[in-house]
């Protein structure tokens, strides 16, 4: 890469272009290509080729132990349509993603609004709220697993105020809620910071004008603040949704998809099928489904931006 940089660098030290062939346009063209070359090559080798291979695998039945790799056409896709578990898996994924987006974004916004009051000492709180972001994901999840045990820290804390806590990771409803909440506390700091930056970009005069018109705080928030920070809301929601569909370590450490299959989200099911049940062909089919869902959601969110984003940037 050093050579790349110095090669395109060379003309810079020579006098301004007089060369008939190396016009500014042509040189820009070459520089542009050279600049994106590493990223493009990486995308082809580490993203597109593997994706095509996954598509190819999904048309095969692949038994690793018996060393057989047989073309079966659409059989895996038919199996997908008839898989009695897939409905529950998709429901769990939808529940997790929706729950995470709602909980995460509302908490992030609440924290950002509180911190935006510019009181003394808010920097300390900002650091505290952000700190889990830099704690290793697995370490964070392991700690929460301990605390969510029936005889763990959370229920001890609740018992101290006279409440009998549920068996968080062992009952259907609370297990999913627990995974969502653990994930929210881990990463809400990122969205909070982005919201805080957006809030600080809202001109003070607008608030003052609204106040003198006698608008309540809630009206000001809804009519002025929210529309002005809507691009950030869109961006954070896209990042959060796409991220939520890739949740793996948290499920693996906290619930292993249980109880029942209540927290078996698509990525975890894919991992089970491909790596635990050794159904690599079917696992590849599930991979294609996951890719299709992520793609569809992203396109959808991007389309919707005109509807609820106040100003396009």
């Amino acid at each position: 890469m050093i050579t790349t940089i110095s090669r395109v660098d060379a003309p810079a030290t020579t006098p301004p272009p007089r060369d008939r062939f190396w016009t500014t346009r042509r040189r820009d063209e070459l520089t542009g290509w050279l600049f994106i070359a590493p990223q493009l090559a990486g995308t082809v080798v580490f993203v597109l080729v593997p994706l095509l291979l996954v598509g190819w695998y999904s048309l095969h039945e692949w038994n690793v132990l018996a060393d057989s790799f047989t073309f079966v056409g659409a059989q895996n896709y038919r199996a997908l349509a008839q898989d009695p578990k897939i409905g529950g898996v998709l429901r769990a994924s939808a529940l997790f993603s929706a729950g995470l987006v709602v909980v995460n974004l509302s908490l992030a916004l609440l924290l950002a609004v509180l911190l935006n009051q510019r009181l003394r000492g808010t920097t300390v709180f900002r650091v505290l709220f952000f700190s889990p972001v830099v704690v290793s994901l697995v370490a964070w999840t392991i700690v929460w697993r301990f605390m969510l045990q029936n005889n763990g820290g959370i229920n001890d804390l609740l018992a101290a105020v006279g409440v009998t806590g549920p068996n968080w990771l062992r009952s259907g409803g609370t297990a999913m809620a627990a995974v969502i909440v653990v994930q929210t506390f881990k990463n809400v700091g990122l969205n909070m910071v982005l919201f805080l930056a957006a809030l600080q970009g809202v001109p003070r005069e607008l608030y003052e004008a609204a106040r003198t018109d006698g608008a309540s705080a809630w009206t000001v928030f809804r009519r002025i603040t929210l529309p002005l920070i809507s691009p950030t809301v869109l961006l954070t929601s896209i990042i959060t949704v796409v991220g939520s569909l890739q949740v793996f370590a948290q499920i693996a450490v906290l619930t292993e998809g249980g109880p029942g299959t209540s927290t078996t989200v698509l990525v975890y099911y894919l991992y089970q099928q491909a790596f635990q049940f050794h159904a690599f062909g079917y696992g590849a089919t599930l991979s294609m489904l996951l890719f299709a869902i992520v793609l569809a959601l992203t396109v959808l969110q991007w389309r919707m931006r005109r509807r609820w984003v106040f100003h396009e940037s």
């Binding site: 820009d28 542009g32 995308t43 593997p50 291979l53 894919l270 690599f280 996951l290």
Partner: peptide, 30 residues
């Protein structure tokens, strides 16, 4: 920088954002 194919290549690169690593882990392993 303006260069030919810029927009389409940007979209190509962006697909990387949409692909969870679990999807491509088996071919990458191979």
């Amino acid at each position: 920088i303006r260069f030919r194919g810029q927009n389409i290549l940007f979209v190509v690169v962006l697909t990387g954002l949409l692909i969870p690593s679990e999807v491509t882990i088996v071919p990458l392993f191979r």
